[in-house]
Design a protein around this nucleic acid. Structure first.
Length: 282
DNA sequence: CTAGGATCCTGTCAGC
DNA sequence: TGCTGACAGGATCCTA
């Protein structure tokens, strides 16, 4: 769920709300999620928020950064003066803020607060030096990402290097950064490729089509503010709407809108729900 | 090296 | 109405 478009949506929201706030205190309700010493944050001003594939970096004026991976159900919700207007709070914020799933609370100046909620507690938050962010344990291993260093020829090189099923390759963060299950399913449908097809067996035309499809579905996801079909919410507490525009993901049993000859089927590939049209994806 | 499965967790929903 | 079990997607780790 939180894939590149969702995390990009979070980043844009946090940039809007957090920048120029000073962190006054940090309340940690769950030590397992939080790595580092909160003293390294207190008194510092938030300078910028960056995204690396599905990971966020909140950069501070004292040279430290807070890196956050929300995994499946992590939510970052801001309350405070920069919201200016009515408060949204999606019912997907189970328990509310603060609530039983609030694990970290960043107390900001001028009455601002950033809550980290995470029902399944798979996500993590770490404090590292800003200068180390790009080479850090997780971020350092990420492959090039769409809209970043990934380009058509690099994409082709990556695709032709692996004999794994193409869907597995798309979702491998060390090969390409940012694509998860939803957008992998949709990009493969859009480019008419069977998710099981071995990566290196794709033709030049298929690689080109897939590259364009990946950019297209991610762009659509960003435009629609991400997919909120499970737990994703934006930092103001509202929902995205890409879930209303899924191409293949979750469409099991529905007639394929393109060929109108077959219904979408679901199977498991690499342990993940995989949706495809058996008629038009070859 | 790769393929496959278990693991981390809990809310939600289908089915009985 | 209430219970049970399957399922959700990100990433890592372990085994064969």
């Amino acid at each position: 769920m939180p894939e590149l478009p969702e995390v990009e949506t979070i980043k844009l929201g946090l940039q809007k709300y957090l920048v120029s706030h000073v962190i006054e205190d940090v309340i940690i309700n769950n030590q397992k999620i939080f790595g580092g010493d909160k003293k390294d944050l207190i008194g510092s001003k938030i300078k910028d928020v960056r995204r690396f594939a599905k990971v966020l970096s909140i950069d501070l004026s004292n040279g430290n950064s807070i890196i956050i991976h929300v995994k499946l159900t992590g939510q970052l919700i801001y309350r405070g003066p920069n919201l200016r207007g009515s408060l949204n709070l999606s019912k997907k914020v189970v328990g509310g803020v603060p609530g039983k799933h609030t694990h970290v609370i960043f107390k900001l100046d001028r009455g601002g607060t950033l809550y980290y909620n995470d029902v399944r507690r798979f996500g993590w938050i770490k404090i590292i030096k800003t200068s180390d962010v790009e080479t850090s344990e997780f971020i350092g291993k990420l492959g090039p990402e769409p809209f970043g260093k990934l380009n058509k020829s690099l994409f082709k090189e990556i695709i032709l290097k692996s004999k794994q099923p193409i869907k597995i390759v798309l979702m491998d963060q060390t090969k390409i950064g940012g694509i998860g299950n939803i957008y992998a399913n949709d990009a493969l449908w859009l480019s008419r490729i069977d998710p099981r097809k071995r990566s290196k067996e794709l033709s030049d035309q298929e690689i080109k089509n897939l590259y364009e499809a990946v950019l297209e579905v991610l762009k659509e996801g960003i435009k629609r503010g991400g997919a909120s079909e499970l737990a994703f919410v934006t930092p103001d507490g509202s929902e995205g709407n890409y879930q209303k525009h899924f191409l293949a993901y979750g469409q099991e049993g529905k007639l394929c809108p393109r060929c109108k000859k077959a219904k979408f089927q679901k199977f498991f590939l690499g342990g993940r729900g995989t949706y495809w049209c058996p008629n038009c994806q070859k």
